[in-house]
Amino acid sequence: MAKISLTVNGKAVSAEVEGRTLLVELLREKLGLTGTHIGCDTSQCGACVVHVNGDSVKSCTMLAVQAEGAEITTIEGLAAADGTLHPMQAMFREHHALQCGFCTPGMVMSAIDIVRKHPEGLSEAQIREELEGNLCRCTGYHNIVKAIAAAFPLMHQKQAA
């Protein structure tokens, strides 16, 4: 067992973990942050995407011990303290970009990273290509693509302000 310390959603946390414990297991089992989901065992589905030091990462591809000292943001850490949704969350709701909700946390975390990394703008085709690492079985992606396109100006406006 190893003791690790990291920051999750702005709070300092520490935990005892086995060497083989995955970051997603730490988040779900030890920290009770069950918003991050496990949808596969081959790092294909993207349901477990979180932000590690500002980058989107499939948290099933990272050992918990590798997160020592890292700043992690999960779906639970996106909304403001008063409950105001992040623009990406708001646009997912507005455009009906979720059905069963299971892929949604990973999809939202990936979508935010996609928009952040393309301040120059994103075409529909680019959004679809960037979503390669996230599977959704319910929506056919149509409305997810719409939601991301709609969140783009809101996110970059906010950063500019």
Binding site: E29, T74, E76, F92, R93, G101, F102
Partner: peptide, 21 residues
């Protein structure tokens, strides 16, 4: 009407079986 269930799903507060302990 926008979906009422979306609030919990988008906040990571869905309640699926594997979330239960």
């Amino acid at each position: 009407v926008k979906r009422r269930e979306d609030g919990r799903f988008l906040a990571g507060r869905g309640h699926y079986v594997d979330d239960m302990n």
